[in-house]
Design a protein around this nucleic acid. Sequence first.
DNA 1: TTCTACATATGTCTTTTACCTATACTGACG
DNA 2: CGTCAGTATAGGTAAAAGACATATGTAGAA
Lengths: 130, 130
Amino acid sequence: MTRRHHARSRSRRLLGPGRWHVQARVERFVEPSLLLLLRERPLHGYELLERLPELGVEGRVDIGNLYRLLRGLEQEGLVASEWSDELPGPAKRTYELTAEGRRVLDTWAEALRRAQGAIGTFLDRYEEGR
Amino acid sequence: MTRRHHARSRSRRLLGPGRWHVQARVERFVEPSLLLLLRERPLHGYELLERLPELGVEGRVDIGNLYRLLRGLEQEGLVASEWSDELPGPAKRTYELTAEGRRVLDTWAEALRRAQGAIGTFLDRYEEGR
DNA sequence: TTCTACATATGTCTTTTACCTATACTGACG
DNA sequence: CGTCAGTATAGGTAAAAGACATATGTAGAA
């Protein structure tokens, strides 16, 4: 075993001389994204992963966390799932949106509109003082 | 001592029957907000706290974390500070933006524009399928 | 004196995200 | 055949970000 085991511990934001890691991500953005994709039609986890970039999710989504998220959403009753035996290939668990999930998606949309406004407020003030 | 010690443990998102806590916050949004306010003029921590709502920072910012953030920004060279003895009242530490801080603020503005675009992409698709 | 507002600071726990690993099915290639 | 790559799901663990609580001190008002 090569045992490289977490040789991370790079400082949180500094990437190089004068290079800072600033990424303006919306907290838990994948969650509403999953609900939105599932509103269109039922999908399984791996398909969801592939489609997330369409919605503006920057960078890669961690696949392990994605499945955990889906199971969390199911526990909360926002999605429902079942194993799809018909389809070829490895076993797939297909998720669909529930009525409750749809309501929560609507709430997310409102929240995202507010966030967009907040960013707008920031950027207006930023441009003023250039 | 009353020893009530953390009797939290409410479930993460559920607030009541059908009421979910969804808040679309931009990760680390207070950080660029502090830089922006300091670009306009030097301020101390408590003043920054009071002015943050102007920039669209939803809800209250934790004061403890705010001071920690400021010291972090100073360690990274994005702001500089000194005690202001002249002013009346309790001792205040006044912060000002450095040249490096100004560059990082510019990077943040770009990142926030991208985030705004991502939210736009999401909302467009959301509106399509209503 | 006591109360409130101003001002800075630390401790600690939870939530969210990143990174890593394990398992298994399937088809392509040599 | 074996093994490699791609599809598919899942768990462990640790760091980062944020929430909550508390401590300390100044200063003015009631």
